[in-house]
Design a protein around this nucleic acid. Sequence first.
DNA 1: ACCTTTTATCGTAATATTGCAATATATAAA
DNA 2: TTTATATATTGCAATATTACGATAAAAGGT
Lengths: 110, 110
Amino acid sequence: MGLTKSEIFSKKQNDIAQIAKVLGHPARIAILEHIAKVETCICGDLVNEIGLAQPTISQHLKELKKIGILKGNIEGTSICYCLDEVKWEEIKDTLQQFLNIFSNQNNSCC
Amino acid sequence: MGLTKSEIFSKKQNDIAQIAKVLGHPARIAILEHIAKVETCICGDLVNEIGLAQPTISQHLKELKKIGILKGNIEGTSICYCLDEVKWEEIKDTLQQFLNIFSNQNNSCC
DNA sequence: ACCTTTTATCGTAATATTGCAATATATAAA
DNA sequence: TTTATATATTGCAATATTACGATAAAAGGT
């Protein structure tokens, strides 16, 4: 089918999964790492940095924008992408909270 | 194409992405949450808990086993799934490290 | 041996994702 | 206004994912 049955899960579960899904591609990890590294915002030299075609990078940027991690400002003829810090904190919180679900109990195996 | 060009990315980038990809489905989040909640390990009542068919749950469990989050012990006629605590710590570390990539700089936008 | 229960695997249909060439769009420069 | 540059969108091919019915496999009970 290829179609996830989102209706049967909670909003929280869907949110966590959607964030993870967007992070679930090495190109998108590479984009975020590059933006983190260059400090100043970057636009299309991601195409040079990463070895993917321009439409492909553009598509990955769209995915990242979809959940709000990145925002893009028009800067002359190019577009400057950078982190949306507020949204990033939210996403970080959501994931960090999830990463602690096993912290309280003794998950000893049977 | 549907085929990720893993060769052009670092092992770390591929690792992070693979973990995120596995977590990128609400059913797998639900499975982990349920195992966290019931403390003791659980097997096939995930099918009842979550509203998906048995083969579907089995497939999702396989994905989770693939990156080692879960391990399954044969317990009579059923199989008891539970967290692989060592592996979970590794996965948690990998993700937590990634979540801090933006912590050092001032990612002010252009 | 036969049945029951539980889980895995196979096969398949529907949909999603990845990647790119071609093209469109938008802005700056000449 | 034409040209160049940068990014987005469209269309498409190849592959992956999701879901499930049917069936196999494994172990326990009768």
